[in-house]
Amino acid sequence: MARRAAAQLAALLCLVGATCALARSQSLQRLTVLSFDLAADTGAPQAGVPFHLIVTLRVRERAAQIENLDLPMLAQLELLGDERETVSGPRGTRYRETITVIAHDAGPMGVAPATLQAIDSRDGKAKEWYTNGLTLRIAGTGGRVVDDGGRALLLGLVMIGLGTAMVFLLVRRRRRVQPAPARAAPMPVCVPAPPVERSRRDRVCDALAVLRAERTRVAAVTVRTAIWRMAGATDGETLGDVLRRPDSRDPITRGLLIALERAAFTYDEDLPAAIVDACSALERYVEETR
């Protein structure tokens, strides 16, 4: 169950990230990425207790806003809030996005990396940067097994350990005869992750995972957008435009596009059937391209 959830999360990221690349390539920012990471504010999140995922990006340029930064879709986590902060100064820009989430199920959970698409100022090429991924172990609601006495004991032990470590460090520093020559801190260079080449079939598999996990109109619209971009469509096109594209001529793809259009626009009572139909069309595509 948890593995499937993690796979779905990863699939969501790949789906959204990879398929957005084409449409966005025309409007990418020129950035020198210095660091780009994803962190959680707790190492042991608990089911039912909100926690934060923090995406931090540092770039050399002064940018009023950061565009084309995709967060992983958190299908297994409920999104409670999203706060963005952009601080620009002479030394560049720091972008920080804090996402407040809550997990409802216990167990291990993978959070896929966030992605950023931009033109690398260093070589003028369009690239995709990835943060690190996160593996969280969500504790169940019964995870608070330590009682007050036990907690005090644990705290005492930690304090003793910290005190010992500090004494040890002070003694070591005093023993040094000559201080080590000061060295300039190396400029952190973010090596962009190699772009992940995902086949059309992989993307359709991702879409299928998304739609199976979340049978809602929002998910259907997301999957529709992703599949349309896979077919080379840009924002604002209609189904007719997409069906006229050379990439959409085969009957399987046409059937898939039509089924997703239905899921996006049909009435609420028909939505479950439309999503089942869209899943079948996605499965058919996966089967045919095996």
């Binding site: 209609t238 189904l239 007719g240 239905r262 626009f265 049909t266 009435y267 028909d270």
Partner: peptide
């Protein structure tokens, strides 16, 4: 033959 409208309907 549909019981829901699409953007294509509007555009056409």
């Amino acid at each position: 033959g549909r019981d829901f409208a699409l953007p294509d309907d509007v555009r056409s």
